[in-house]
């Protein structure tokens, strides 16, 4: 991506668009990705509470997967899962 000159960026280091971090593909940092055993998952959502990157996707109170664009593969979800149903698998 071509970077803008000083005349074309907001002054003062401001980021004038809210939620711009979403555009940043931090998923590319990952070396291990979380994979969930849907059979074992009891949808306690402890993984959702702990995930530092809001990458546990939830719908109607249930874990429905991972946001791999932003998941950095930190493995916290696997660590805190009481059912040990999340495995960290090499990319």
């Amino acid at each position: 991506m071509e970077k803008k000159g000083f005349r074309d960026i907001p002054i003062g280091g401001l980021i004038t668009k809210a939620g711009s971090a979403e555009d940043y593909n931090t998923g590319s940092w990952r070396t291990f990705k979380p994979v969930r055993d849907e059979e074992k998952c009891i949808h306690c959502l402890i993984c959702w509470v702990y995930c530092p990157d809001s990458s546990i996707l939830v719908s109607e109170g249930k874990n429905v997967g991972f946001d791999y664009k932003h998941c950095k593969g930190c493995g916290i979800c696997a660590k805190v899962c009481p059912k040990k149903c999340i495995q960290m698998v090499k990319e």
Binding site: G5, F6, P10, I11, G12, G13, L14, I15, A18
Partner: peptide, 28 residues
């Protein structure tokens, strides 16, 4: 132009600004 209290138009003040843009901000 960008009041932090304007919750309809949220902005970020003071983000990390590294090699790619810090210099441009000083140039400003």
């Amino acid at each position: 132009n960008f009041p932090l209290l304007d919750v309809e138009n949220p902005v970020t003040y003071g983000p990390l600004d590294l090699q790619d843009y810090y210099f441009e901000h000083k140039r400003q």
